[in-house]
């Protein structure tokens, strides 16, 4: 049984490369249990590759990936399958199965893994839907009948279907209007509060970073650097400076965060 102090996700010496193009070079990352970690980096810095590596979709060239104490790439199918029930992934556009209704999308993981009666699955699907703020009449719609924001919420409801301990989000607020994006931020915070989730989210949205993340991991020079927002603001790397102290970063910070010491 893994101890509570062990990190939820631990990457050690991870190397990812496409042919001769190295994306991650001996990258280390530790995500603490119960924190919300933002993952940022320039285009092509390998944010999505890192996420795919964590959830077992892309084996790294070298290094180990441990999630909840289990080596993702070093265990048998059965252990890995048990592990997969303990994380939920939200892909960029929801990645809902287009031939299934929202209800069936949410119930698919339950149907595949658990033996629940249909009424109970219907009730649990309704709980998921209300948790992510979707109206119940969305349940019998097909993904193509939903707006982009609703698809993301439905995708989140599916990610929550098995009550995971870790939630991985790929740009959850991209493509949403500011109201929708703020609503999504609130939603993730509320879920984090109520369910004690560990959340890793890729985002380009400085507002989201400021509002909801505990720490931020910056992908820079093929490595990963984890720090709190105020530490990053004082960092001397030019890219980090541009990111957080550029016009957009400053505007977002001015709106939300208590100003870091010394300013």
């Amino acid at each position: 049984m893994p101890s509570e102090s062990e990190p939820a996700i631990a990457l050690e010496g991870v190397v990812n490369a496409f042919g001769r193009h190295v994306v991650h070079d001996r990258l280390d990352l530790a995500v603490r249990r119960g924190e919300i970690l933002g993952l940022v980096g320039g285009s092509g810095s390998g944010k999505s590759v890192l996420l795919r590596t964590i959830v077992g979709l892309r084996a790294p060239e070298a290094g180990t990936v441990r999630v909840l104490g289990t080596d993702v790439y070093g265990v048998g199918v059965r252990t890995r399958r048990a592990l997969q029930a303990r994380w939920g992934v939200l892909f960029q556009d929801g990645a809902l199965f287009s031939s299934l209704t929202v209800r069936e999308n949410i119930q698919l993981p339950m149907r595949e893994r658990l033996e629940l009666s249909q009424p109970l699955m219907d009730q649990l699907a309704a709980v998921r839907l209300t948790l992510v703020g979707l109206p119940l009449d969305a349940a019998d719609k097909l993904p193509s009948e939903l707006s982009g924001g609703m698809r993301k919420r439905a995708g989140l409801a599916r990610a929550l279907a098995l009550d995971p301990e870790i939630l991985l989000l790929d740009e959850p607020t991209a493509g949403l209007d500011p109201i929708g994006a703020a609503g999504f931020d609130e939603l993730i915070l509320a879920l984090h509060d109520a369910l004690g989730l560990t959340v890793v989210m890729i985002t380009h949205d400085v507002d989201s970073l400021v509002r909801i993340t505990d720490r931020i991991a910056v992908l820079l020079n093929k490595r990963c650097r984890v720090a709190t927002l105020s530490e990053l603001r004082r960092a001397d790397d030019p890219w980090v400076q541009d990111y957080f102290n550029g016009p957009r970063g400053r505007a977002a910070l001015a709106d939300h965060a208590p100003t870091p010491a010394g300013e």
Binding site: T101, R103, Q123, A125, A126, V127, T130, L136, D140, A194
Partner: peptide
């Protein structure tokens, strides 16, 4: 949280 979210929650059975 569940109580407040699910004041109404009960999905009608699939048509």
């Amino acid at each position: 949280k569940i109580e407040s979210a699910c004041a109404q929650a009960s999905l009608p059975p699939a048509p």
